[in-house]
């Protein structure tokens, strides 16, 4: 029996999901020059992944995006953020914006801020998706359905 929603939904999802994720990445990377930022971008990325999961059903999606991937990106994003903050010590102080500030309003500007935004986007995107995955996969009365 096919899982997930109807063919129409699946086709549309197939067309738009990658653009949603791409838009999320754009919002995160341009967070320092335009409205948005790591949190908003990450939430959009997670929205794209959740759309895939709703359209194709949890069994099929779980093969593409596993619980371990969500955990890895989530922790990795947080670690990268702390690492950027700690790198500031090399220049003298915690969270010091040590990288070149560049020209304002350009993509390559604002020093470490875009890097921090990217780290936050990874953390938030994977975190929100992980929460959704947990709610979809774990069932009351049993530890976990299927794998892991």
């Amino acid at each position: 029996m096919p899982s997930g929603m109807s063919l129409i939904v699946k086709t549309v999802t197939r067309l738009v999901a990658s653009f949603i994720v791409l838009f999320g990445v754009y919002v995160a990377l341009y967070g320092h020059v335009s409205p948005g930022g790591g949190f908003a971008g990450g939430a959009i990325v997670a929205g794209g992944l959740i759309l895939v999961m709703l359209a194709f059903g949890r069994r099929q999606t779980r093969n593409m995006f596993t619980h371990g991937m969500a955990l890895g990106w989530d922790c990795g994003g947080a670690l990268a953020f702390v690492a950027i903050a700690l790198l500031g010590y090399l220049a003298g102080d915690f969270f010091l914006n040590f990288a070149g500030h560049g020209d304002p309003y350009r993509l390559a500007s604002a020093g470490t801020i875009p890097l921090s935004n990217a780290a936050i986007a990874a953390k938030v995107g994977a975190g929100l998706f992980g929460v959704f995955l947990a709610l979809a996969v774990f069932r009351p009365g049993q530890r976990q359905e299927g794998e892991q």
Binding site: L71, C75, A78, L79, V82, A83, L86, G92, D93, F94
Partner: peptide
């Protein structure tokens, strides 16, 4: 004095490293 943030940063980094290592 500027080592004070480490009291937060070290356990935070350790916490996020723990499930990965």
């Amino acid at each position: 004095t500027n080592l004070l943030p480490l009291f937060v940063a070290i356990p935070l980094a350790g916490g996020f490293l723990a499930p990965l290592i």
